Simulated scan of single mutants.
Amino acid sequence: MSPALLYPFIIVAGALQALGNSMNAQLRGRMVNPWLAATVSFLPIVFVFATLFLTMPVPLPGLDSLGRMPWYAPLGGVAGAVAVFGGLAFVDKVGAGPFNGLTLTANILTSLALDAFGLFGLPGGGFKPMPWLGGLLMAVGVTVIARATPAREDGEGGHGLDPKLLYPFIVVAGALQAIGVVWNAQLRGALVNPWLAATVSFVPVVFVFAFILLIRPTPLPTRRDLSGVRWWMPLAGLTGAVAVFAGLLFVDTVGAGAFNGLLITANLLTSVALDHFGWLGMRQVTAGPPRLTGAALMVAGIVLISLF
C-alpha cells in the first residue's frame, strides 16, 4: 500500500484529537471531579481495545521480544494522558487554539530533540537547521494565536489564576505527548499485536486516574450535573485514542515527519475552527487576521519539518 493512501486517515485522526480535547472539557464540567472525568474518558478506550484484542488475539509476542522491551515502554499511554488531562482541565480556560498550539509546538520541538540526540532508542540524526527553523515558526505562530485570544471577562482561568499561568503545564504535557508516541512505538514492536499494545498502553492510565479518584473522591457530580451529560462526552477519550493508534500502526510506513505534520496540521486547523465557531460548547473566539497568521506560520513550520 502506498503511504499516501494512509494520509486521509491520519488527517481524520488529527481532527479527532482536537475534538477530543474540547469534548473532554465539557465532560470535566459535567463530572465536576477531574479524576472521575478522566477515568470515564479512558475506560471506553480500554474496553474497545481489549474487545478487539479478544476478537483478534494473534499474533502474540514471544519471550525474545518481551525481553528486549524497555521498562518504560508500557508507560507511553500515561505520558500521553498528561496532555489529555490538561485538555480536560484547562482547554476551556485558555481556548482550544492556544492549548492545542502550545501542546503541538512542545510536541514537535521535543520530537526534533528526540531525533537529533537519538533518545529512547531512536537513531540520532544530528542537528538539521531547517526542521528547527520550522519549530521556531511554530513557536512564533502559537504566540501570535495566544496573544490574539482575548482574556476572560473575569480575568481568571477558573482556577483563581490568569490562564497564561497554565501555559508551562501545557508545554510539559505536549513534550510528554511526543515522548509517549516513541514509547508506544517501542511497545508495539515488543508486543507485536497492535490491539494488545494499545490495551497495555491505556490500562495503566485508567488505573492511575481511578486510584487518584479513590484518594480524592470529592467533589462528585449532582443529579443535575449528570443530566447535562451529552451522549458524546464520554467518547472524548476514544477520539484521542484514534491518533495514538494511528501512530502505533503508521509511523513506520509514512515516516515520522509526514505523520506528525499531517496530524498536527489537522489538529491545529480543527482547534482554531472550534474556537471560531464555538463548537462543542467552546467560548467563541473569531479567527481574525492575527489567528490566521499564526496558523499559517505553524503550517509553514510543519512543512519545513516534514520536508527536511
Rank of each mutant, 00 (worst) to 15 (best):
P3N: 08
P3I: 04
A4V: 06
L5T: 10
L5D: 02
Y7G: 02
F9H: 05
G20D: 01
N24F: 06
A25H: 05
A25W: 00
N33R: 02
L43F: 01
V48K: 05
T55S: 09
T55D: 13
P57F: 13
L60R: 15
P61M: 14
G62L: 14
G67R: 13
W71G: 10
A73D: 05
P74W: 03
P74T: 04
A81K: 02
A81M: 04
V82W: 00
V82D: 01
A83C: 10
F85Y: 09
G86N: 05
L88A: 10
A89H: 12
F90E: 05
F90K: 05
F90T: 03
D92N: 14
V94Y: 06
G95W: 12
A96G: 12
G97W: 03
F99Q: 06
N100M: 14
L102C: 10
T110K: 08
L114Y: 08
L119Q: 13
F120C: 12
G121Q: 14
G121H: 12
L122I: 14
L122R: 15
P123L: 13
G124Y: 15
G125W: 07
K128V: 14
M130N: 12
P131Q: 14
W132G: 09
W132C: 13
L133Q: 11
L136G: 15
L137Y: 13
G141P: 07
T143P: 06
V144W: 11
R147P: 12
T149I: 04
A151W: 03
H159S: 12
L161H: 06
L161V: 10
P163H: 12
P163C: 07
L165M: 14
Y167E: 09
F169I: 12
V171R: 02
V171S: 03
A178M: 11
V182N: 09
N184H: 01
N184F: 00
N184M: 11
L187K: 04
R188E: 06
G189S: 10
A190G: 08
A198L: 02
S201R: 00
F202Y: 07
F202N: 01
F202C: 00
P204C: 04
V205P: 07
V205W: 00
V208E: 01
V208Q: 02
F209Y: 10
I212R: 03
I215L: 10
I215G: 11
P217F: 12
T218G: 13
P219Y: 07
P219G: 08
P221L: 09
R224H: 07
S227Q: 13
V229Q: 02
V229W: 03
R230Y: 05
W231Q: 02
W231N: 04
P234C: 05
L238T: 01
L238E: 03
F245P: 03
A246F: 01
T253W: 04
A256M: 14
A256T: 07
A258C: 04
G261C: 03
G261H: 06
G261L: 06
G261E: 07
L262G: 06
L263S: 09
I264Y: 04
T270N: 00
T270E: 00
A273Q: 14
G278V: 11
W279E: 08
M282I: 08
V285F: 10
P290G: 12
T293Y: 14
A300W: 03
A300E: 08
I302E: 07
V303T: 13
F308S: 11
